[in-house]
Design a protein around this nucleic acid. Sequence first.
DNA 1: CGAAACTTTGATATTTCTCAAGTTTAGTGG
DNA 2: CCACTAAACTTGAGAAATATCAAAGTTTCG
Lengths: 246, 246
Amino acid sequence: MLASNLTIRPLFEEAATVDEPCGLAMLFVRNPIERAAPGQIVFFEGDRALHLFVIREGNVRICRQLHDGRRVITGFLAKGDVVGVSFKNRYLYSAEALDNVSFQRQTKVEFEKQLLARPDLRPMLLTQLCDEVAAAQDQMVLLSCRSAEERLCSFLLARLQKSMAQGCEPNVINLPMTRLDIADYLGLTIETVSRTITKLAGQGILSAGRRHEILVLKKSALVQRAGEDEADGDDTVDDAPRHYHH
Amino acid sequence: MLASNLTIRPLFEEAATVDEPCGLAMLFVRNPIERAAPGQIVFFEGDRALHLFVIREGNVRICRQLHDGRRVITGFLAKGDVVGVSFKNRYLYSAEALDNVSFQRQTKVEFEKQLLARPDLRPMLLTQLCDEVAAAQDQMVLLSCRSAEERLCSFLLARLQKSMAQGCEPNVINLPMTRLDIADYLGLTIETVSRTITKLAGQGILSAGRRHEILVLKKSALVQRAGEDEADGDDTVDDAPRHYHH
DNA sequence: CGAAACTTTGATATTTCTCAAGTTTAGTGG
DNA sequence: CCACTAAACTTGAGAAATATCAAAGTTTCG
């Protein structure tokens, strides 16, 4: 067996936009491409973890269900992401298609075997695991002590970066997930997410066009309101009060 | 280089109580034992990440500082835990002694070299990374959608398990950290932690004796109030209303 | 075109935070 | 060994953020 239940990003994010699978993703190329329609579940939390998956097209949400019905989304996957690496026998979360998804699977056993044949790919596995931990810890910080506005701004900036990398028009954020997905990812309610977007739009910071697309008008203001994160200003600067905790 | 910035639990938790270092911890035995007094910092967030560390005695908190002064504790370490594994050049968090700590260090380079010489230890690194991711995701769930009471009860149960494993008297929780540490770990304020403990004590579920020790009177009630987690009842059962989100 | 799903908006409730003051504990030095 | 001090913890009252409940608007898709 191999590695804990988790999601793995491609080693070279940029390369993921190219159609030639590289890195760990190349270990899946021999298998047939499968498809999942929006809302369809690729694998269930609690299922025996027999396969790893790589996303070829579309977007996926990673969910954990609490027995009382509450749901937490621990991440979103896109083209090139690998998911299901695990030392555990069962998946610790389910993976659900957000839109039309195509993916490939590989049995754990075969994955391991191929990994042995390609020792150059092994460090990538470690790198991915480490990045995964870093991402999870960042999310812990976000959930621990950030206000709704800070959470949403952080999220939108991360999404903006991803959208840009995927070749969207500049300053356009692609949001393949619903508001409820965003809420469950940020530890908020759908109403709070909606209100916060409305507020930011009212301040001229962004403009919510179609449901799954947001235009960023003042990136610097978004960065400020995100509280931490990467700086990379390019326009006007506003004042951004903050509060909360200690 | 090797592995992302994170903390690693010993492969066999039980064995950690034995003084013979095993697993990854054995890669440190040749180095001198260093000591840190309470409050002293073993390494700083942002420092160049040149070493890995193993805790030999005492307890350590893992902190991330936000630029506005807020602090998040992402974990606590104890005897046998390894910390500092990273592909990154700099530590993503600092490690601070809670009490009198003794530890050993090892350079990354030497650690890697020794790991090559002991290929049987390599899967342990993966296992640890995976466990780390799983733990971080559990914490995300906790921070995402659990009430103060649920968080505290989860935390106390986890600590109870750890205390038992370390050979404390049954039902005694050892808390080497302060209330503020607990608050920063659970994403609450110190006042909320205090009030919640008081409330649980008032309900006869636990009894706060000395500052760093709590006696569990009704473990099953604690499990119920924790909301999820491992079941393992052994006494009375109460009703536990819950609420919050969706 | 109409229904269903998704989103926004509003009014109110609740939790938890904040600020402030008091109490206990642990540690120090006389 | 005790008194004293600083740190840690508890408790209370009020404020703020966000959740909840409810209803009305949109968009999407058949």
